[in-house]
Measured scan of single mutants.
Amino acid sequence: NKFNKEMRNAYWEILLLPNLNEQQKRAFIRSLYDDPSQSANLLAEAKKLNDAQA
């Protein structure tokens, strides 16, 4: 399933972002589970926040 693969990839990438705190990571991951079809958008948002907090 395409969404499962995308979601899994986004999950691990979000977990490994160094500048997000645990609460932020949990919020993004919760959103991933709520709507896996938004994986790419959520990952992009997480990366943007990660860069902003660098």
Results as ranks from 00 to 15, higher is better:
25 K>L: 05
52 A>P: 06
17 L>V: 01
36 P>F: 06
19 N>G: 10
9 N>S: 12
35 D>T: 12
33 Y>G: 02
36 P>H: 05
8 R>M: 14
12 W>H: 14
10 A>Y: 02
12 W>L: 03
46 A>G: 03
40 A>W: 15
16 L>I: 05
37 S>V: 06
22 E>M: 10
29 I>D: 00
53 Q>H: 12
22 E>A: 12
54 A>W: 11
21 N>S: 07
37 S>R: 11
3 F>D: 14
29 I>V: 09
30 R>K: 04
19 N>T: 07
54 A>E: 11
36 P>D: 02
42 L>G: 02
30 R>L: 07
21 N>R: 08
29 I>P: 00
2 K>Q: 15
45 E>L: 13
35 D>K: 11
44 A>K: 11
38 Q>N: 07
4 N>G: 09
4 N>T: 06
31 S>L: 08
40 A>R: 08
33 Y>W: 08
28 F>M: 05
31 S>H: 09
37 S>A: 10
19 N>S: 07
7 M>W: 15
9 N>F: 14
41 N>W: 14
43 L>M: 07
54 A>F: 11
19 N>H: 13
27 A>T: 15
4 N>A: 03
35 D>E: 07
11 Y>D: 00
5 K>L: 01
34 D>E: 11
2 K>V: 05
17 L>Y: 06
53 Q>V: 12
25 K>T: 07
28 F>D: 00
30 R>S: 05
42 L>R: 11
18 P>G: 08
1 N>Y: 00
20 L>M: 06
23 Q>E: 09
38 Q>Y: 08
35 D>P: 01
21 N>A: 11
51 D>M: 15
1 N>P: 11
48 K>L: 13
49 L>Q: 05
10 A>L: 05
45 E>Y: 15
23 Q>L: 08
29 I>W: 10
32 L>V: 05
50 N>L: 01
22 E>T: 13
24 Q>K: 03
21 N>E: 12
28 F>G: 00
30 R>Q: 03
19 N>F: 09
17 L>A: 07
42 L>W: 13
49 L>P: 00
33 Y>V: 05
16 L>H: 15
10 A>W: 03
32 L>F: 02
40 A>L: 13
24 Q>R: 06
23 Q>N: 07
47 K>R: 11
54 A>N: 11
12 W>K: 15
45 E>G: 11
16 L>Q: 13
7 M>A: 14
10 A>E: 01
27 A>I: 08
